[in-house]
């Protein structure tokens, strides 16, 4: 499983994808490949459809046209049971953690294990303790999600997403609502996952610091043209992109000066 060569094999291929709500086309003509072991960033301004694209990739929203290929499996052309099988090898960290609030953190992390493994209760307990320790929450097993802070909830969500040692982990705005230090810790955790386990990481974000620190590949979704206007390593894009919108996004509107009153804002 641990393929160290970045992007050597495709993990997910997206072909001609169009996503719409009723008659409103949110995004059209998306074509990109997420390689195994990559840290793939989906970026773009607010309202460009980043989170909706993520929903399409994880099976929560059906696209109106195009294909999502997980290896040979065309994700949206197979039965829901087949889709479940694909998703069993994936973990998702939702924006707010989305922990099941009627269960303790330990029960949250244990549920995927109870569902899909034949581990004995004692083994599950050990596994849960290990995953909780990985995200720095050792000792919080018996807390309910409402009793901990937002950042801790996010980390617990990550522990749950990693419970089944997934081949791919999706992150929906991982640093949103986190203080800079916690955001950095989460970034470090993501790099660890990617480098040590060979896990493919897909991140929806507009947090520039994270994009440059961890991204190895990316696409940029443009709000106005409703499609992707750039792809590639974000650091390369910053150097070589000629698209003014992409450059403006990656440079915080063209300048790091906080005056921001040059007539145009993103």
């Amino acid at each position: 499983m641990s393929v160290q060569v970045t992007g050597s094999q495709p993990h997910i291929e997206v072909r001609g994808l169009t996503v719409s709500y009723g008659s409103f086309v949110l995004m059209r003509d998306l074509n990109f490949t997420i390689g195994r072991g990559e840290v793939f960033i989906i970026m773009g301004g607010s309202g460009c459809g980043k989170s909706t694209l993520l929903k399409v990739l994880v099976g929560l929203k059906r696209p109106s046209a195009g294909q999502v290929l997980y290896g040979p499996v065309s994700f949206w052309d197979v039965s829901p049971e087949e889709r479940d099988k694909v998703m069993r090898r994936a973990g998702i960290l939702y924006q707010s953690g989305a922990l099941w609030s009627s269960m303790t953190l330990a029960e949250n992390v244990a549920l995927p294990l109870e569902q899909y493994t034949k581990l004995k209760p004692a083994e599950i307990r050990d596994m849960v303790a290990y995953k909780m320790a990985l995200v720095g929450l050792a000792g919080f097993e018996d807390f309910y999600p409402s009793e901990i802070s937002g950042g801790m909830r996010k980390r617990a969500g990550l522990a749950r997403a990693m419970a089944l040692d997934p081949e791919i982990v999706f992150f929906d705005e991982p640093s949103a609502g986190l203080d800079p230090v916690s955001a950095k810790l989460l970034d470090d955790l993501i790099i660890e996952l990617s480098q040590n386990l060979g896990t493919t990481i897909v991140i929806v974000t507009h947090e520039l610091a994270s994009i440059f620190a961890i991204g190895t590949n990316s696409i940029y979704l443009d709000v106005e043209t409703r499609t992707m206007t750039a792809k590639g390593n974000p650091n390369e894009l910053l150097k070589s992109s000629t698209d003014p919108k992409v450059v403006r996004f990656l440079t915080r509107g063209g300048s790091d000066q906080p005056d921001g009153l040059k007539g145009e804002r993103i």
């Binding site: 099976g59 998703m87 998702i92 924006q95 099941w100 549920l111």
Partner: peptide, 17 residues
């Protein structure tokens, strides 16, 4: 309804439950 708002239902669906 609150579980829908919190994406908890989505988390179940994507787990295949």
């Amino acid at each position: 309804g609150t579980m829908q708002v919190n994406e908890e239902v989505d988390a179940l669906v994507t787990l295949g439950v």
